[in-house]
Design a protein around this nucleic acid. Structure first.
Length: 598
RNA sequence: GCCCUCAUAGCACAAAUGGAUAGUGUAACUGACUUCUAAUCAGUAGGCUCCAGGUUCGAAUCCUGGUGAGGGUACCA
């Protein structure tokens, strides 16, 4: 329950507290700036103020009175206002290794969630559009946050939400039909109007689309072309409006076309989500909340919560400095807001036990969500709801827009990275089977893609650069994988000895600072993982992975395992197991797999 | 105009929430594969933390005022 890193610090903190007569907590013990100063540091400033003594004197007092009778603490030194603490190398390593072995999958768990339920919505790509790298930040961030929250003891229910109705769908389908009709009329010599569409034609048109084209990229291209066509000829706008109304009134012919094409998108999402480790418990669609949304708007009007304004329906939030919140357009059709009001209700209805509802959407929507939450509150909605924002992803050439079509689609990007990883793997392992190369390349590609997105703080705009994504050197996911694979290699050569779970082999025989540094690094995941959960920041875990991998590589380079004396060898093997498992756990929290070799 | 973010080495990012000499990667230069995998490691070089004030023992971090970039600001999502 209490992991070693917390327990060790807590123990030392309490003893310092006893010496001083004031409370000191584990959080007051931090890492010193340089490892040669010690393993932990305590700054005496705040306690000194409380005691009304100079910090340097307090530091000396602690060192003098702490006593040396402690197996875990080897040395304490006063360095000005700081107390530097050196942990007993062998003792600490041994305890850390036991901790990792004992906890297993629950390693680095600090149960802050207490199994309370969170409904976590992310993954909101629209149907009838291509999924591009802009969506990727949300998916990767979301799936990692979910993993981190679950690890920290929350009962997380995941939800996706897809815009499967609205203007973008109408445009896409209008152009789809228009294209086919134009072709037909040039063949048959008679022109037709989009609304003359028959069910037979729908089937014929759909059948004409080859299977490999039935995806978001194709539909997204239609949408982009439609937008361009309308921009060139404004008069076409009215045709799209007619189509949109036909769709909203469930015209059977257009409904069929909509259903089929939507299925292409949704099936594609299922595949893409699976490969990205995006596991969704409940898939919400805008089409299932649009009617209820309109009903809620009527209700709000009756209750006087909403009012008419310039022909549209708004909720006046001026008194909260949130302006006016538009919940129905003047032509009577729905908006994102209309549907979101109903969605919130639906979520509550389906998951009555949820303690919190969270939505992961990029920061451009932050005002919108403030307005939405304020409105929900006025409706008497009582589930604590929060918007977790992040800055969007942009290309070097500027922001992506499906409307303009300057998008890097996710399948294209993934293929590019995968091809590169495949080539690099092949060069290194000529003799491997096709399947082994495929799997390894996939794991490396996923690591490259995800880690690149996760190591950066979500509050900063991410500038996408394909060249950079194709580098697996330095601060990257594959770097961390490689460190693990090297540890794995040692274990494999030792034939995976069964040495875990007991007092022997005794890791207390280890005394090298590099071994201790590795042990401390792994122990610190117990600190990092809960914090990442609290702040919903996977970047903390990503940076922990990098640092730990670096330390692991130093251990690998300087300390021979297989050629060491028997007792040292076994102790190091045990440490290698723990390091491998700790690092693997770190990557798991990021949603990144680890190959056996690479 | 108003509101919200961001600004750290050429480039890309950190900095344990106010602590010790601001770190890591890349790119540049030097070196290390007969070794448990070189997708690695070691070294050199690179900084007025956007500017100006303030708060205090102490500021990249907090406050005020600028500058620059991006986003939002009702009938898009």
């Amino acid at each position: 329950m209490k992991n070693l890193w917390f327990a060790a610090r807590d123990h030392i903190a309490q003893r310092i507290g006893t010496v001083l007569g004031v409370p000191v907590t584990a959080g007051d013990l931090v890492l010193p700036p340089k490892p040669d100063m010690g393993d932990l540091a305590f700054g005496c400033f705040t306690v000194a103020k409380e005691l009304q003594q100079p910090p340097t004197e307090v530091a000396e007092k602690i060192v003098k009175e702490f006593g040396t009778v402690n197996r875990l603490v080897e040395k304490m030194e006063a360095a000005g206002p700081f107390v530097n603490i050196t942990l007993a190398t062998g003792e600490f390593i041994h305890r850390m290794v036991q901790d990792v072995e004992h906890e297993g999958e629950r390693y680095a768990v600090l149960d802050i969630g207490k199994q309370k339920r969170i409904l976590f919505e992310y993954a909101q790509p629209n149907t009838h559009k291509s999924m591009h790298v802009g969506h990727l930040r949300n998916l990767v961030l979301g799936s990692s946050i979910v993993a981190i929250l679950k690890h920290a003891g929350w009962d997380v229910v995941t939800a996706s939400y897809h815009g499967d109705v609205g203007a973008h769908v109408a445009k896409c389908l209008w152009w789809f039909v228009k294209q086919h009709q134009t072709q037909q009329s040039s063949e048959q010599g008679e022109s037709s109007w989009v609304m003359d569409l028959t069910l037979d034609q729908v089937y014929a048109y759909l059948d004409g689309i080859p299977k490999e084209q039935r995806n978001g990229v194709y539909l997204g291209q239609l949408y982009t072309d439609a937008t361009k066509a309308i921009a060139a000829d404004e008069s076409l706008k009215s045709e799209v409006s007619v189509v949109q109304r036909a769709l909203e009134s469930h015209d059977p012919v257009w409904h069929k076309l909509w259903q089929e094409t939507r299925r292409w998108s949704l099936e594609e999402f299922t595949d893409l989500f699976e490969e990205l480790g995006v596991d969704i418990d409940r898939q919400y669609l805008e089409s299932e909340v649009v009617d209820e949304g309109q009903r809620i708007v009527n209700e709000l009007l009756e209750q006087g919560v909403a009012e008419a304004s310039e022909g549209a329906i708004v909720v006046d939030l001026e008194d909260q400095k949130l302006g006016k919140f538009l919940i129905r357009k003047s032509d009577g059709t729905s908006l994102y807001a209309t549907k979101d009001l109903a969605l919130a209700q639906l979520k509550k209805q389906e998951y009555p036990k949820m303690e919190r509802s969270i939505l992961l959407v990029d920061n451009r929507q932050s005002l919108y969500f403030k307005q939405l939450f304020a409105t929900l509150k006025r409706m008497g909605y009582d589930v604590p709801t929060a918007h977790i924002g992040y800055e969007f992803l942009t290309l070097k050439s500027g922001a992506m827009s499906s409307r303009e079509g300057n998008v890097v689609t996710y399948p294209d990007f993934r293929n590019e990275v995968y091809r590169y990883a495949w080539k690099e793997t092949k060069v290194r392992h000529e003799s491997w089977s096709q399947g082994q190369i495929n799997y390894t390349a996939w794991a490396i590609a996923i690591a490259g893609i995800k880690f690149g997105l996760l190591r950066q703080d979500p509050e900063r705009i991410f500038t996408f650069d394909l060249e950079e994504s194709l580098s697996f050197d330095g601060d990257t996911g594959p770097y961390v994988q490689y460190a693990i694979v090297r540890l794995e290699s040692i274990l494999r050569r030792a034939n995976y000895p069964d040495i875990r779970g007991n007092e022997e082999p005794n890791c207390r025989v280890l005394e090298d600072p590099k071994e201790k540094a590795l042990a401390i690094a792994i122990a610190r995941l117990g600190d990092v993982a809960p914090r990442a959960a609290e702040e919903m920041r996977p970047s903390l875990v990503a940076h922990w992975c990098l640092e730990t991998a670096r330390i692991s590589n130093a251990f690998y380079r300087d300390l021979p395992v297989l050629d060491a004396e028997e007792d040292v060898k076994n102790a190091r093997l045990r440490l290698a197991y723990a390091a491998r498992d700790g690092l693997t756990m770190g990557l798991k929290l990021l949603g990144i797999p680890v190959p056996e070799a690479m």
